[in-house]
Every structure is written in structure tokens, then in C-alpha cells.
Computed example of a mutant assay.
Amino acid sequence: MSVNEMFSGIQGFLSADQDVREDIRKVVQGLEQTAREILTVLQSVHQASGFKDNEPLMRVFVLSLSLSLSLSRFHEHWRFVLQRLAFLAAFVVYLESETLVTREEVTQILGIEVNREKGFHLDIEDYLSGVLTMASELSRLAVNSVTAGDYSRPLRISNFINELDSGFRLLNLKNDPLRKRYDGLKYDVKKIEEVVYDLSIRGLAREPGSGGEE
């Protein structure tokens, strides 16, 4: 094979590679728009009126992802939107059940895989990043709950976030961006603790299940 023939083959690969990148860009743009629409719906939980939709919150997730394993080297193109979708899934599950969504549950919600070998999947780092974003959203919800007159929710959020913090302390995080995100969790814990403390000194704090909610 001549040099020209070799480089012609390389050019063909580069052109095909660029086509794949463009296809991925379009898919990611669609996912980002979907994520923005989902977040807009969920933001109503911060209002005094709360989330009034009678349909299950999980119905906001109508997603179907179908990218093959051969595209795994393009992970950076969709890392951010996957982290955002993992956060939204975690937030929805918490609002419905006040429990922590598992990585497996997130992949079921998004219609993707857990394992890299099976195709388009959710990395554990992206899952954890989504969970940490949810923690920040819950710290905000704790403050807004007090404004709305819901004095028991901040205590439940506090218990949940402290348990989440204890779980993260068990991890030996090597991923620098994820480590930095985890460092921010202590500020969320502190913010929620301040809310709970304020409720306590005002005599408004009620332990979950105490039967003394305002």
C-alpha cells in the first residue's frame, strides 16, 4: 500500500469519526434540552404550593438512549448531561420515597446499561456526581421548606444528608473533579444543620414520626 493510499484510508476514518461526533452532539443537545425541561418541572417543589401534579414524578422521565459500546471513547461528550440526568433521577426518587436511588435504578430510569461491556452505560463517577448535586438541591429545599411552613422536612433531609455523608466517607475517591464535588458536601451538611438548629431554638423542630408536626 502506498503512502497516499494509507493516508486516504486515514482521512476516511477521520471523516467517519467527525460524522459520529456530529451525531453525538445532536443527541447530547436533545438530552440537555430534556434535562432542562425535567428540572423546570421539579423546581416547583421549592415553591410554597409544592408539587401539585397528581401523576407520579417518575413520569417526567421518558428517555430512550441507544449509543453502542463503540462510542465509549466519546464519553466526555455526554458526561455532563449524564451527570445531570443522574441528579434528576436521584432527586425524583428522593421526593417520592425519601430514599437514595441506586446506580442500577438510575440506569433503569434512563434506559441505559450499568456495565460498560453491554453498551451505553452510567459510570460510577457520573452516578456519584449526580448524587452530590442532589445533596446541594436538598440543602436548598430544606431552607425553602421552612419558608413554606414545613418544619419536619428539614429534619428528615438532615438525617438523610448525614447518612449520605457517612457513606461518602467510606470511599477512597481518586477522581479529582469528583473529590472536589464531595468536598462541597460538607457545606451542604453545615447549611442544613444551621436550618435545623434555627428550628430547634424556635421550638419548631419535630423529629420524624413524633406526631408533633406543625
Results as ranks from 00 to 15, higher is better:
residue 139 S to M: 08
residue 141 L to P: 00
residue 30 G to E: 07
residue 128 L to S: 06
residue 85 L to D: 00
residue 20 V to W: 09
residue 52 K to S: 11
residue 201 I to W: 11
residue 13 F to Y: 13
residue 168 F to Q: 01
residue 10 I to P: 10
residue 144 N to R: 12
residue 160 F to M: 08
residue 71 L to S: 03
residue 148 A to F: 08
residue 83 Q to K: 12
residue 199 L to K: 01
residue 80 F to K: 11
residue 14 L to C: 07
residue 56 P to E: 04
residue 120 F to W: 04
residue 60 V to T: 12
residue 203 G to E: 01
residue 113 E to Q: 14
residue 211 G to Y: 07
residue 71 L to W: 12
residue 157 I to Y: 00
residue 179 R to I: 06
residue 194 E to H: 14
residue 95 L to K: 01
residue 97 S to G: 11
residue 113 E to F: 09
residue 173 L to M: 14
residue 128 L to C: 10
residue 136 S to Y: 02
residue 26 K to P: 06
residue 108 Q to R: 14
residue 76 E to S: 14
residue 116 R to N: 13
residue 121 H to N: 10
residue 36 R to S: 09
residue 152 S to P: 05
residue 45 V to G: 06
residue 146 V to R: 03
residue 177 P to M: 09
residue 173 L to W: 02
residue 120 F to S: 03
residue 87 F to V: 09
residue 87 F to Q: 08
residue 5 E to F: 15
residue 120 F to V: 02
residue 52 K to G: 08
residue 113 E to C: 11
residue 92 V to E: 02
residue 57 L to H: 13
residue 205 A to K: 10
residue 181 R to M: 07
residue 206 R to Y: 11
residue 160 F to R: 05
residue 35 A to E: 09
residue 146 V to Y: 04
residue 139 S to Y: 06
residue 119 G to W: 03
residue 47 Q to S: 13
residue 170 L to I: 14
residue 91 F to Y: 15
residue 31 L to C: 12
residue 3 V to G: 07
residue 29 Q to D: 15
residue 210 S to Y: 08
residue 54 N to A: 11
residue 206 R to M: 07
residue 77 H to T: 10
residue 17 D to V: 03
residue 98 E to Q: 14
residue 51 F to W: 11
residue 10 I to R: 09
residue 201 I to H: 06
residue 62 V to H: 12
residue 119 G to A: 01
residue 185 L to F: 04
residue 7 F to W: 15
residue 74 F to E: 04
residue 4 N to H: 12
residue 146 V to W: 07
residue 167 G to V: 08
residue 14 L to T: 06
residue 193 E to I: 01
residue 209 G to H: 00
residue 39 L to M: 10
residue 212 G to Y: 13
residue 75 H to T: 09
residue 128 L to K: 06
residue 6 M to E: 14
residue 25 R to E: 11
residue 105 E to T: 02
residue 8 S to W: 14
residue 195 V to N: 03
residue 166 S to W: 02
residue 98 E to S: 04
residue 200 S to D: 08
residue 133 T to I: 12
residue 78 W to T: 00
residue 20 V to F: 08
residue 157 I to W: 01
residue 127 Y to H: 04
residue 78 W to Q: 01
residue 160 F to W: 13
residue 203 G to C: 06
residue 16 A to E: 09
residue 151 Y to H: 13
residue 72 S to P: 00
residue 148 A to N: 05
residue 172 N to D: 13
residue 66 S to Q: 10
residue 119 G to Q: 06
residue 180 K to G: 03
residue 171 L to V: 10
residue 49 S to I: 12
residue 174 K to F: 10
residue 154 P to S: 09
residue 69 L to P: 00
residue 164 L to P: 03
residue 140 R to G: 06
residue 60 V to S: 01
residue 115 N to W: 12
residue 22 E to M: 02
residue 211 G to N: 05
residue 104 E to R: 10
residue 214 E to G: 15
residue 149 G to R: 04
residue 59 R to W: 08
residue 100 L to N: 06
residue 51 F to M: 12
residue 139 S to W: 02
residue 154 P to E: 04
residue 7 F to P: 03
residue 134 M to W: 03
residue 83 Q to W: 01
residue 115 N to P: 08
residue 67 L to A: 05
residue 145 S to P: 03
residue 156 R to H: 11
residue 206 R to K: 15
residue 197 Y to G: 08
residue 204 L to G: 02
residue 16 A to Q: 10
residue 165 D to H: 11
residue 74 F to R: 09
residue 124 I to G: 01
residue 167 G to Y: 10
residue 176 D to T: 15
residue 71 L to A: 07
residue 207 E to Q: 09
residue 203 G to Q: 02
residue 182 Y to H: 14
residue 52 K to I: 05
residue 79 R to S: 11
residue 1 M to K: 13
